[in-house]
Write a protein that binds this DNA or RNA. Structure first.
Length: 871
RNA sequence: GGGCAAUUAGCUCAGUUGGUUAGAGCGCACGGUUCACAUCCGUGAGGUCGGGGGUUCGAGCCCCUCAUUGCCCACCA
């Protein structure tokens, strides 16, 4: 590293260098901390292997990295376990697409070749996402990286499956499931999206024996072919007499009963309902109540099967039209009307999902859900923000059995074998003995089945590894609220069931990243924000800071790149501060700061502010209010340290004695050092790089100690005095601006009152170009044509005869008077209110009195001046 | 049909046990080449905190209600 800082921070060069350096030194590993240090563990939500980095990844990486870096600096054994997810459907789709482009298909090349191709694909692209996570500064322990299809994790998956089977919590059966015809697999309820769409409601006559008919309405006429009953409400006067009679399925004339069931809403449609148990969830329930047969009329690709009679082989929507036309020809249709309805669509691809009867594997989930509910209810696990606990309860209290089998190839194969006589063997190995005629189960497990084990499978479970003992349960699960059910709830259920411990103690949920207008980011909207592009342009730190300071837990964040740009300037500002400080050092500097009593006012002030800030920021970090923490540090370091303290430090630095120089250098270094520490979790790169140039102990900021607030440096009096000085300086600047006094023109100020104006006259010279301060004698008259600035009991008179227009000054003072009077009267009203003085916190009352005294003093002086100047 | 969130300056957002004059950044206006930084500095304009009601000495914050927007859950053919 060069001795002198470069003029600007070269983030491109520094980011990769520092990251490598940190990693090579093993600082991402929990072993950095002493062996007996408390553990702090996060399991990274594994991104999809084939996924491309998007801003959502940046958000979670940043938040988790902030947590990890903070806890690491607090001395904990911080472990962040990274990894990737095989993402069954998503990945399989990508490879299938590739095959299509090559003019072949998975069915053509067969299962084995397909899997080989998918692994190839994974090897090729799977590293990309983790490479990108490194660019973001993620300080995770790459030696512990896992992939959901690793041997160890696959063992865990098989183990869990077998145990659940042995416990009677996994069963196989024919149930009505959501079927995706395109993917040709079952999908879970969570993978189905329901949206209102404009559809049609078809009314027709259901022929009933005796020549009558029942008017019926449906949104999906093709399902008529699978009807096994027509239902009416048992008390419906119109149709009651038909219950028990036979009806006939149109076109195929199958005989079905008319039944009575209270589920039927008499007011909707015609008040009569066709029942298609194999293709509708409600009808399925009705059929179970009435013991009706269930006729599946569809093939896996949603073409109609032999049950559909003449319509066999037709695609479902074509069959709909054709059947309706045929029924119309037969004169049994009534009308078609527009109808908004809820259409279930696949989360992937968006095709219409078909409820279909099929043989699947399920987990009997209620017993697991009970434990998961209890863990949150009892406070063993807390969810941040708290409001999501209610959502969590509601879902788990109404949970349905989990369909875990998928008719895909990419994933964990279900550890089951089917015997020649329909026997089922579930085990980690094939059935013992003669296995002729046995075949392995074809299905794979839902991706979320393996991710549900993530917090403990990544640590070696079911083996009792040292990592598992040391780092499980983990501490925080940080992820998006959109996968609370998919993932978080399942981890809690499976974690409690198999390890008897909650897999983590806190769930921290972040929101979705949207564009600056609050719109969802999507390719079709064309508002995709490519994080790599931003990072190339501004560096990682500004983007990280924008995401963290622009959001609060659980709420979506609208990312405005203007914020990133502003933070890029903030990074430069930090660099320049460090540059200034280092340039003004000379010789050896003792660490720490001089004792409080030996310091000048600005130093006492900045150290008081700093120590207050440390306490606040630490509290904010501890309560997950990272955004507020970041903003506070930002405001302090730019608004107080750079704008005021650095400016004020120039006096002792350039004109002070050797001792004064040394004092202010120590404070400058110390305050910046402490700020860099607090800022490091947010902006790891610029802070580390700048810190290296400051005098420091220890090798690196990443493993430096988190600041501790020192109460000895809290100094109310210094803060009061400085704040008065600052207000006075601002007042002078304002006067100069209003009267267009050239910035270079030195002016004189006459002063009355007790503020430290005289002692710190050099500040006025430097900060508002007041070259001379004249302390007025008691009773002395102020200069005539002058502007005045009053703060508390101190007034500065600025004789500016050439600039001041008396009338303008009177107006200015009048405005000031009005402002003060308004505040005084408000304050007086408060203090005269018996309710306030007797009930409010005494501190608050005392503060209010103080404030009133100060306002009163200032007002009195303004009034005096008005009397003198403006008759 | 239930539930949750949001609504604060032109824009994007803060404001967590109710208590100074409601803040920041961007944008805007004006002014600045002296020794960290023009990726900067200074000054300023800009807000009935969505509407209404209530609790309280005191409400952006708590309660009720309405409105708008977004999201989640839900079996209406």
């Amino acid at each position: 590293m060069p001795d002198k800082m470069a003029k600007n921070f070269d983030f491109k060069e520094a980011e990769s260098r520092l990251y490598r350096w940190w990693e090579e030194n093993g600082w991402f590993k929990p072993e950095t901390a002493p062996a007996d240090a408390e553990a702090f563990v996060i399991s990274m939500p594994p991104p999809n292997v084939t996924g491309a980095l998007h801003v959502g990844h940046v958000l979670f990486t940043t938040v988790e990295d902030v947590m990890i870096r903070y806890e690491r600096m607090k001395g904990k054994a911080a472990l962040w376990v990274p990894g990737t997810d095989h993402a069954g459907i998503a990945t399989q789709l990508q490879v299938e697409k590739l095959l299509r482009e090559e003019g072949t298909s998975r069915h053509e090349i067969g299962r084995e070749a397909f899997l080989a191709r998918t692994w190839e694909w994974k090897e090729k692209y799977g590293g990309e996402i983790t490479r990108q996570l490194r660019r973001l500064g993620a300080s995770c322990d790459w030696d512990r990286e896992r992939f959901t299809l690793d041997d160890g994790l696959s063992n865990a998956v098989r183990d869990v499956f077998v145990r659940l089977w042995e416990q009677g919590l996994i069963y196989r059966g024919t149930r009505l499931v959501n079927w995706s015809p395109g993917l040709q697999t079952a999908v879970s309820d969570l993978e189905v999206e329901r949206e209102e769409e404009n559809g049609k409601l078809y009314f027709f006559k259901y022929p009933v024996e005796g020549g009558e008919y029942l008017p019926v309405a449906t949104t999906r006429p093709e399902t008529i072919l699978g009807d096994t009953a027509v239902a009416v409400h048992p008390e419906d006067e119109r149709y009651r007499h038909l219950i028990g009679k036979k009806a006939f399925v149109p076109m195929i004339n199958r005989e079905i009963p008319v039944i009575g069931d209270a589920y039927v809403d008499r007011a909707f449609g015609t008040g009569a309902l066709k029942v298609t148990p194999a293709h509708d969830f409600n009808d399925y329930e009705i059929a179970r109540r009435h013991n009706l047969p269930m006729i599946n009329i569809m093939n896996p690709d949603a073409t109609l099967n032999a049950e559909a009679g003449a319509y066999v082989g037709m695609e479902r929507f074509a069959a709909r039209e054709r059947l309706w036309a045929d029924m119309t020809a037969q004169g049994i249709t009534l009308r078609v009307q527009d109808h908004t309805m809820v259409v279930p669509r696949s989360q992937r691809g968006g095709e219409v999902v078909e409820p279909m009867l099929s043989m699947q594997w399920f987990v009997k989930i209620k017993p697991l859900a009970e434990k998961a509910l209890e863990a949150v209810r009892s406070g063993q696990i807390t969810i941040v923000p708290e409001r999501f606990e209610k959502v969590y309860y509601h879902w788990l209290e109404n949970i349905e059995d989990w369909c875990i089998s998928r008719q895909l190839w990419w994933g964990h194969r279900i550890p089951a074998w089917h015997g020649p006589n329909g026997e089922i063997h579930v085990g980690t190995t094939p059935p013992p003995g003669d296995v002729t005629g046995w075949r392995p189960d074809e299905d794979v497990l839902d991706t979320w089945f393996s991710s549900g084990l993530w917090p403990f499978s990544t640590l070696g479970w079911p083996e009792q590894t040292p990592d598992l003992r040391r780092f499980y349960p983990t501490t925080v699960m940080e992820t998006g609220y959109d996968i609370l059910f998919f993932w978080v709830a399942r981890m809690i259920m499976l974690g409690l069931w198999f390890t008897d411990q909650p897999p983590f103690t806190t769930v921290y949920l972040h929101g979705l990243v949207r564009d600056k207008f609050g719109r969802k980011i999507s390719k079709t909207l064309g508002n995709v924000i490519d994080p790599i592009e931003i990072v190339d342009q501004y560096g990682v730190d500004p983007l990280r800071f924008a995401l963290v300071t622009g959001s609060t837990p659980g709420n979506d964040i609208n990312l405005d790149t203007a914020r990133v740009e502003r933070n890029w300037r903030f990074v430069n500002k930090i660099w320049q501060m460090a540059n200034f400080v280092t340039q003004n050092l000379e010789g050896e500097l003792p660490p720490g700061v001089p004792p409080h009593t030996t310091l000048d006012l600005p130093s006492r002030w900045i150290l008081s502010r700093l120590n207050r800030l440390i306490a606040t920021v630490t509290r904010l970090y501890d309560t997950y209010q990272y955004g507020e923490a970041g903003r506070q540090i930002d405001e302090f370091i730019w608004g107080e340290y750079a704008d005021w303290y650095i400016e004020m430090s120039k006096h002792p630095l350039y004109q002070g004695t050797e001792e004064e120089k040394q004092q202010v250098r120590r404070v400058l270094v110390y305050v910046l050092d402490q700020c860099l520490r607090m800022l490091h979790p947010f902006m790891p790169f610029v802070t580390e790089e700048a810190w290296q140039y400051l005098p420091h102990q220890g090798q690196a900021l990443i493993v430096a100690q988190w600041p501790v607030s020192d109460e000895n440096y809290l100094d109310d009096e210094a803060e009061r005095q400085m704040s008065a000085l600052i207000d006075l300086i601002r007042g002078v600047r304002n006067v100069r601006e209003e009267y267009n006094v050239e910035p270079s023109r030195k002016i004189t100020a006459w002063v009355t009152g007790t503020a430290a104006v005289d002692a710190y006259r050099h500040l006025f010279a430097r900060l508002c170009n007041v070259s001379e301060i004249r302390v007025m004698a008691v009773g002395e008259n102020p200069p005539g044509e002058s502007a005045s600035v009053a703060v508390g009991d101190t007034t500065l008179y600025l004789p500016l005869a050439d600039f001041i227009d008396l009338q303008a000054e009177c107006e200015r003072l009048g405005k000031e008077q009005a402002r003060l009077e308004q505040q005084v009267s408000k304050s007086k009203a408060m203090l005269n209110n018996e309710g306030f003085t007797s009930r409010a916190n005494p501190d608050v009352v005392a503060k209010e009195r103080e404030k009133l005294a100060s306002l009163d003093a200032a007002l009195a002086q303004i009034l005096d001046r008005l009397r003198q100047l403006c008759p």
